[in-house]
Computed example of a mutant assay.
Amino acid sequence: MKWTSTVALALLAPANALLRFPCAQLVIDRLDPLVTPGMAPSPHLHQIVGGNSFNVTMAPSKDMPTESTCTTCQVCLDFSNYWTAILYFKAKNGTYKRVPQKQNVGFDGVQGGMTVYYMQDGLYNFQQTSKVTAFKPGFRMYIGDVNARTKEQAERFRQLTFTCLQDMNTRDPQTLEFPTQPCPAGIMTAVRFPTCWDGKNLDSPDHMSHMAYPEYGTFESGGPCPASHPVRMPQLFYEVIWETKQFNNKADWPSDGTQPFVWSFGDGTGYANHGDYVFGWKDDSLQRAMDSPCYQNCPTLQTQNAAAMNACKKDRVVREEVDAWVNELPGGHMPEYIKKRWD
């Protein structure tokens, strides 16, 4: 799929823009309209936030801002959909329990979901002076490898990390694998997407190759985009905080010293951390926001309160148990190396 308009590469005057906002949970469902469109159920369970036009197909021609009647995100003009896999705890008796999500500091009252960032420069760069080109209608992308089970495989994707939260302000150290000790304030997963676009394709067969990482370094370090992907786009970044408090009793953990958490598709290493994105901002509101001088809270964007965010819901398409203890992960995922851990 091509974007046929001319890509404007001219630099404009610097504008300090970094957007950070919460999105409540829209639905937990076994759907993945990006990787497995039209399949219900999809192979594994996801947690989805954003516009309520989310569905099993999500055709590229879909006008998400028009078809959505609400969004779970704080920014009223953002009808995009953001989703990740679900985290589970595996008990010694072999049963599983979904780990709930909680919001970041400062977003009290917002139910589950995640925190979303759009940045011109790195998170701790208060100047935010780099010019970026906002995503276009029909744009979508994926990052990560659902089949990754080694550190070497995970290192192909920069900055998909875990943080063991000692308190809600902890941000380091970050690891590529699941924490190996109980985390007092929960486990935070970070999903940072590539930031260099080829300027032509709104998607690609693998949902990744139309995007690239900087030629060297990272987005935060200001590394240049490669010639094949010359258009610098915002850093899209998710933070998901998993409330592990009820699972932090070390006596409930495996006696062999390994950790008990597993992704909804059966990965017990954490290396297969991944995320999906389908753009759905109304009109040119994201570009206008990125061109405006604002840090975290942008006065040019209308926002809604937690009650309105929480009220935006979507009925599950795939009817299955997602909250009680279950004998197997939805979709039947249970790799041999995980089963043997409990033998």
Rank of each mutant, 00 (worst) to 15 (best):
D172R: 15
A148K: 04
Q174V: 12
F139Y: 15
F162S: 12
M141H: 15
Q153L: 00
P173H: 08
R158V: 07
D172K: 13
I143E: 14
A154S: 10
C164Q: 02
K136P: 01
D145S: 11
D167M: 10
E155Y: 03
R158I: 03
A154F: 00
Q159T: 10
G144L: 00
A154C: 00
G138D: 07
P173C: 06
K136A: 07
P173K: 05
F162Q: 14
Q166H: 11
F162D: 13
D167G: 12
R140I: 05
R149G: 04
F139H: 13
T175F: 05
Q159M: 06
L160P: 07
T175Y: 04
C164H: 04
Q159G: 09
R149E: 04
D167K: 13
T150A: 04
G144N: 00
G144D: 03
V146C: 04
A148W: 00
L165Q: 15
F162W: 14
R171I: 13
Q159F: 09
R149A: 07
Y142L: 09
L160M: 09
C164T: 08
N147G: 07
R158H: 04
L176I: 11
P137G: 10
R171H: 04
R171C: 02
Q153D: 08
F157Y: 15
E152V: 07
G138S: 05
T150N: 02
Y142K: 08
E152C: 01
P137H: 06
P173A: 04
T163V: 15
T163E: 14
G144I: 02
R140T: 07
V146P: 00
L160N: 04
F162T: 10
K136V: 11
I143F: 07
F157Q: 05
T161A: 05
R171A: 13
N169Y: 14
D172Q: 14
P173V: 10
R171K: 13
D167T: 13
F162N: 11
E155K: 09
M141G: 12
K136E: 07
D172V: 09
R158K: 13
G138C: 07
T175P: 00
N169I: 07
N147L: 09
Q153C: 01
Q159E: 13
G144F: 00
F162L: 11
T175N: 05
L160E: 10
N169A: 08
D172W: 12
L160G: 10
P173R: 10
L160T: 07
E152D: 03
F139A: 10
T150G: 03
E155G: 01
C164S: 11
T170P: 12
A154G: 05
R149V: 09
T163S: 15
Y142R: 13
F139D: 15
T170K: 14
L176Q: 08
T175H: 02
Q174Y: 02
L160W: 04
M168I: 11
R158Q: 12
K136F: 09
P173E: 06
C164P: 09
M141W: 08
L165F: 10
R140A: 14
N169C: 06
M141I: 10
R156Q: 11
T161W: 02
T150L: 02
V146G: 06
V146K: 03
M168Y: 08
D145M: 03
D145F: 03
P173S: 06
Y142H: 13
M141T: 15
K151S: 07
L176S: 15
G144T: 06
R156L: 05
V146N: 06
T163C: 12
F157P: 09
M168Q: 14
R156M: 03
R156Y: 08
